[in-house]
């Protein structure tokens, strides 16, 4: 094999792994703390009982708890164990990496100099609104769908490590006197630290393994840089082709949601709708995330989430293309990275 191909593979692979490492560790530490300190019934006490408001809240949680798509998987698994409803969790997992201040600011920054229409309006604000809006809608509708999938499913949808502990069954007793529930034994700080570090290290290892596998797979794809160029050159007049092409690119590239807007902005030939499909799908589904999801969801659930997200992204981007397809006013050969 050509040495330069190996060199490109190593950079593409290792860059994603090391950039994501601190965020996975942060997620793992939060997961350890949640597991140890958050009472089992805390979430269910505060969350609305009905699934619709619960999912709508889940989709907006990223505004309060901003997490990147790598870290969110770790945290989500622990939230599921703590009783956060699956539908609500899915909405948070899908929308969280998009509907958060950091990502929306970077989207605005990437597109602010990109002028469209006869008046030369900045593309920054519309891209922020469209990305946040579509991301939220896709996440919430997927959450609703998963609610019904969960209700009808006769087999578990979560892996054992993500399943909340079932309620304790009462012990058989011959006496008729109802016993007072035994108070939870008080844990020493040492025991708590032990549990937090154990969970944090376990989760860090568990998710990083799949991050590495996914990054390696993505690096193999990305090593062919011509691939990106050929996707980008899809005609603005062929959204049926350009939108799925950009969606496929988002899945293959495995970019961080904070950075993907800068790459999308550099696709000067692509239409707004194609860029949007790239920006909405990427943080929800890519090769590394797909592998990381297997640590939380069983394949049956992944098989429900993936088409739900992909079809919605495609459909909404197509609608956007029909309603909002401004031509660039003036643009530099590359205005990305500003």
């Amino acid at each position: 094999m050509d040495a330069s191909v190996i060199q490109d593979f190593v950079i593409n692979f290792i860059a994603v792994v090391w950039q994501a490492m601190p965020f996975i560790l942060l997620g793992a530490l939060i997961a350890g703390i949640l597991e140890e300190l958050l009472p089992q019934d805390a979430i269910s006490r505060f969350l609305p009982k009905h699934f619709i408001p619960a999912v709508l809240i889940g989709g907006a949680l990223g505004l309060i708890f901003p997490m990147c798509e790598c870290g969110i998987v770790v945290v989500m698994r622990r939230l599921l164990r703590k009783g956060l409803p699956l539908s609500c969790c899915v909405a948070y997992m899908l929308a969280g990496p998009i509907v958060n201040v950091v990502v929306l600011m970077s989207t605005w920054y990437a597109f602010k100099e990109y002028q469209v229409g006869p008046e030369g309006e900045s593309l920054g604000p519309p891209m922020v609104l469209l990305r946040a809006g579509l991301g939220y809608v896709v996440a919430c509708l997927t959450g609703f769908a998963i609610h019904f999938v969960e209700k009808r499913s006769k087999t578990p949808l979560l892996t054992a490590s993500a399943m909340p502990p079932a309620a304790k069954k009462p012990k058989l007793s011959l006496t008729v006197v109802e016993a007072e529930p035994a108070p939870a034994p008080k844990k020493s700080i040492w025991v708590r630290l032990n549990n937090i570090t154990a969970v944090a290290l376990h989760d860090f290892m568990d998710i990083t393994v799949f991050l590495i596998l996914g990054s390696a797979l993505a690096a193999l794809m990305r090593t062919n840089a011509d691939l990106v160029g050929s996707f980008e050159s899809m005609s603005r007049s062929q959204p049926i082709v350009a939108i799925p092409a950009m969606m496929a690119l988002a899945v293959l590239l495995c970019l961080c949601s904070e950075a993907d807007a800068f790459l999308a902005a550099s696709f000067t030939k692509a239409s707004v709708s194609a860029k949007l499909s790239f920006l909405v799908l990427g943080p929800m589904l890519d090769l590394k995330l797909l592998l990381m999801y297997t640590r939380v969801f069983r394949w049956k659930l992944i098989a429900a989430i993936v088409p739900c997200v992909v079809i919605q992204c495609f459909a909404y981007s197509l609608i956007v293309h029909q309603l909002y397809n401004p031509l660039p006013t003036l643009s530099a050969e590359s205005t990305a990275g500003k």
Binding site: N12, V16, S106, R222, A259, D260, F262, L263, A336, G337
Partner: peptide, 14 residues
């Protein structure tokens, strides 16, 4: 080659 986060998102300024 302008990098925003990591090398995979590098875009050329020309």
């Amino acid at each position: 080659m302008k990098i925003t986060c990591c090398a995979t998102d590098a875009v050329p300024l020309k």
